[in-house]
């Protein structure tokens, strides 16, 4: 694999998505508006807590922001096949002379950049609305958590992206089931202990559990990178395992689609 050639091709995907955002800008305004309102309404639940409302608001807002970011990364990667199928370009992308890693790597790069920008805009809006003080927060650690946790969500996104390859009609909807399940078990808006006892062990299998724990430690308690090193290492390891596993599963799905004739446009 000639690295520079593959990198250039990878950037073509990021550039293409950027161009599409420009053309679908009104959709972006709507998505952003909804994300801000959603985060605000979740944060407002914390206002009812009385004396500790500031801490609870931050707890909830961190959950909403992180979930927003991870959802965007998961969605953009997971929906990349559905989107191409809908546009009718899927065959052209899959017959391009590039490695699948290049194709999906470009989509992941875009997803992280796009998710980060959206999260920062929502954060600014929320901070202004609640007059949040982030003086005790360790933003650098928070950023490190965001970057490291992206790896595992990319891996999961790659696994989810295979579903529309397997089933053009139902695959896209199935990715939402995965997303919903992660939301339920990962303690996005509550502690894991709030889950029924039988469900609590499931949270160990979700990278979002560790992401949220680490992000809250950084932003609520001001934990440093060295203090969170074990959590960050765990997240990095999960990502390192999930990305190749996701690629492997995707390649199996691609082969299945090529065998059964499902690698074609739909709609």
């Amino acid at each position: 694999m000639k690295l520079t050639r593959e990198l250039r091709a990878s950037m073509a995907f990021a550039q293409r998505q950027y161009n599409l955002i420009k053309r679908y800008w009104s959709w972006e305004v709507v998505f952003l508006f909804y994300s801000i309102i959603n985060t605000l309404t979740i944060g407002l639940i914390g206002v009812q807590a009385g004396e500790n409302s500031g801490e609870l608001i931050l707890y909830l807002v961190v959950g909403a922001l992180l979930w927003g970011f991870l959802s965007v990364v998961f969605h953009e990667v997971g929906e990349s096949v559905s989107w191409e199928r809908w546009e009718g370009t899927i065959e052209y992308t899959f017959m391009a002379p590039i490695h699948r890693l290049t194709h999906l790597g470009g989509m992941c790069l875009y997803a992280i950049g796009y998710g980060a920008i959206r999260t920062i805009i929502v954060l600014i809006a929320v901070a202004l609305f609640f007059d949040l003080s982030l003086t005790g927060a360790n933003l650098l650690t928070g950023l490190a958590v965001l970057v490291v946790s992206s790896l595992s969500f990319i891996g999961m996104g790659l696994m989810a992206a295979v579903l529309p390859l397997l089933s053009p009609e139902k695959g896209s909807q199935a990715t939402h089931i995965i997303q919903g399940f992660i939301l339920l078990i990962s303690g996005v808006y509550y502690e894991i202990e709030a889950l029924p006892a039988w469900m609590q062990p499931l949270s160990r299998f979700s990278p979002a559990t560790y992401t949220l724990r680490a992000a809250r430690a950084a932003l609520l308690d001001g934990a440093s990178i060295s203090q969170l090193a074990p959590e960050l290492l765990r997240l990095a390891l999960i990502g390192i395992l999930l990305i190749p596993l996701g690629l492997f599963i995707f390649s199996l799905g691609e082969r299945y689609a090529m065998r059964t004739g499902k690698l074609k446009r739909n709609g």
Binding site: R16, N19, L20, R23, Y24, E87, G88, T89, I90, E91, Y92, R265
Partner: peptide, 9 residues
């Protein structure tokens, strides 16, 4: 047969 493009681009 179908000119497959990103239609908004």
């Amino acid at each position: 047969v179908d000119a497959a493009f990103f239609k908004k681009l």
